[in-house]
Structures are given as structure tokens and as C-alpha cells.
Design a protein around this nucleic acid. Sequence first.
DNA 1: AGCATTCAGAAACACTGTTTCGATATGAAT
DNA 2: ATTCATATCGAAACAGTGTTTCTGAATGCT
Lengths: 217, 217
Amino acid sequence: MHKSSNLSSIDAHSVTTYPKAKLQHAEILRLNIIEAAATIMQEYGPEAVTIRKVAEKMECPTKIIYNLFGNKEGLAKELFLEGCKLLATAFQAVPQQDDQNSYLRDLGQAYWEFSRNYTSYYMVMFGGAFSEFKPEEESLNAIFTALQQVIAVITKAIEQGFIVEKDPLLVVNLVWASLHGVIHLHLGGHIQNEETAKTLYDRSVSNLIQTFFRNDN
Amino acid sequence: MHKSSNLSSIDAHSVTTYPKAKLQHAEILRLNIIEAAATIMQEYGPEAVTIRKVAEKMECPTKIIYNLFGNKEGLAKELFLEGCKLLATAFQAVPQQDDQNSYLRDLGQAYWEFSRNYTSYYMVMFGGAFSEFKPEEESLNAIFTALQQVIAVITKAIEQGFIVEKDPLLVVNLVWASLHGVIHLHLGGHIQNEETAKTLYDRSVSNLIQTFFRNDN
DNA sequence: AGCATTCAGAAACACTGTTTCGATATGAAT
DNA sequence: ATTCATATCGAAACAGTGTTTCTGAATGCT
């Protein structure tokens, strides 16, 4: 106890730096709380993320979490944004190709693997795991950012005349919705067998590419 | 209080009919509880369905609900099955047509309207509104039954050579997943504008039909 | 009619998100 | 430096959830 009293007694005259140091401390605490929540979520699933468990892991009272995030929705939003970053990273890790068709296929594969490797994040972001959280503008922008590679490749394909449809976002949404549908039905237990789900997913990818990419025959 | 004591004192000698009457009573009670839960759900949403609120509406202790349904998951399952019946009815209400292409389009429209008119049921069935409930065999069969019209029309289209793909269930799942994806992204707040969502939905239907129905040109 | 069994129904338990409130400690002012 | 006001801390309480206990009462069988 009284952990910070030593720190604050180091120098008592630099008044202006005090709030800054405290804010830094608060920011670090904030990040640690998000990390703790993420750890619990990935280990035991989104429904295991309770304010009390996070507070227990952080060895702090729940009030601090409420001070920093307002309510559970605020913490959920941070996990949502964290997931967006992970998805963005996953897409960025896919090597670009001149063949837009093949590149889009690889991005689709990356999306599937993201849903497998970060299932809890996927459920928070797109599966409604935290029913209290609905994405608002900032969260929607984060998704938009995460999908940037997909948007880019489709935009390019349109510009180069490989895709007839003019509106890139329309195509992106159609692709996204179709693939999300397969993943979500699988995660929801409606398509239980994973192989079956993967087969459906790959067929969806192929069908979408066939639909949008004019095959010049 | 002692409501049933009058009933049971009507005739005390017909011993064999007693359990039957009681089972009937239990069955009626069971149906009333499901109806009460459904009413709460449709009025205030799935998250408002709590054992206590249902018990309060039924003016009975929560124990009775636990006796009849085991736990909340058991009650959720009944709502799920109820939703399947409603969806089946909605599909059956679509007039059959010889033109499989057009018929499938109308079934797709009915599916969209079901998700609009019975959003809570849709969320319970396919949106994971009751996270504790995952469909087991009986529930999966109920979905299969509800989708019967869709399965039939696709099977027929394959038999008649309009669809090249051989496996009807594969096609059904691909169609279902794509359309569910649009609906679910919309209900989840990722595609907020309803008009946009409907446009995407209609385009998905068109794309799917174009993909699977060989256009004889 | 008596007896065993079952079941109703209130209360309690364990857990959740969230808020309250007194004690504490902090930051500013004289 | 001491005082005062403010802000924060942190335990406890509140309201609500799913579920289980437990006692008294009614039920069904002998």
C-alpha cells in the first residue's frame, strides 16, 4: 500500500509535470487493464470477461475500471478496437500480388484464419459477444481501417476493369457479408463440422470472385 | 392461493384420469410459460427474457419453470423451436412457382421479411441472443425442416438441370450463409442503414442465383 | 385412513454490473 | 508549512441475474 507516495515525494516543486506523470500512470494502468481483459477473454472466452475478474487480476477495486472506462461497454469497445488492430495486422501480413484475383483469395484466407486464431475477438467484433456493445462511429472506422487491404484490392480491380461493378464499398460489403455468414453460422453451431464450414467458405470465396471478376472468355 | 384444490376435489374416485389431467395441466402450463416468454421477448427483446420476469408474468415461482424446462437454456430452446415454426410458416406462405429462379427469389424475400418481422426470434435462432444456448440435434433438425422449401426448390432445380452443382445442401448452405451474413451484419450494427442493407441483400440474392443457375445464352 | 413421496414456493446463494459513501490522500492557497 | 478543498480510493451496498435449498403442504398409493 501507499505505492505512489514514494514517487510523489521525489520532487515536490515541479508542479506542472505532476498531472502529466499521473496521466501517464493512468494511461499505463489503462493499457494494463485492457491487456488483462484480453488475456481473460482469449483464455476463457468473452463471457468470462467480468469487471470483477479483471479487477481481481489487476488487484484493484472495480471502481478504477469504471473511472477509466465508464462502464463495461467502454471496456468492450477497447477489446473491439484491439481486435480491429489484430485484423488489420493479419491483412497487412498477406503479401501483395499483382494478380488481384489471387490476392483477394489470400485475403479471404487470412480472414478465415483470423476467425480461427482470434475467435473471441471475432465474436466481440462481429458476433455480438458483448450484447451491450454496438459499434459506434469510431468502432466502425476501425473496421474500415482494418478492411483497407480488401477495399484497396477491389478498388484497384475496378480501376483496372477486372470488376464491372463501379462501387467498391458495395462489393466489399457483399464479399464481407457472405464470408462472415459462413464463419458466423459455423461459430454459432449451425454448421458444426469445421471441414464442412471451410469447404463452404472456400466455395463462397470462389463464387464471389467468379461473380465480380469478369472472366474474359 | 389453493387454486387447484377445488379442481382436484371435483371427483376423487377417477384415479386413472388424474395423472393425465395433471400432465395436461402441466402441458398447458408449459405452453403458457413459453407464450409468456415469447411475449416478453417480442416486446422488449431477447435480453429482457429472464426467468424471474417470466415467472412474474405467470404469477408463479421460478421453481416451476426450472421443473419444466431444467434451466434457462431449456426455455431458450423452446423459443428457438417456436421461431423455426414461424419461419417454416413464412416459407410455406410463399406461393410455389414453376420458375425455380423466381421462386427462390421470393423465398429469399420471405427470409428477409422474417428477420424484420421477427427480429428477436431471428436473433435467438441465428444471432446467438441467448449465448448459453447452442443448437443441438433437435434444434438443427427444426432448422432443416424450416428450410424445407428452400431445399426443395434447389433440389428440383438440380434435378431439372438448371443448377450444375450436384449437392443440394451445399448450395442451400451457401445461399443461407450469404444472406444470413447480410442480415446479421445489419442487425449487429455494422451496416446501419436499412436501405443499404436491403440493397446488399437483394444484390446477394441476384448474385447467388446468377452463380448457381446456369444462364442459357 | 395413513403413509411415503413429491412438489410448491419462499428464501437463500453465488454471481453479475454499477453506485454509494466515508476515509484517505492529493493539489492548491494562504 | 499548514490549512483547506478537491479528488480519488476502495470497501461495502444495491439491484438484478441464474440456480439451488429447504420446509410445509398437497398429492397419490396401499
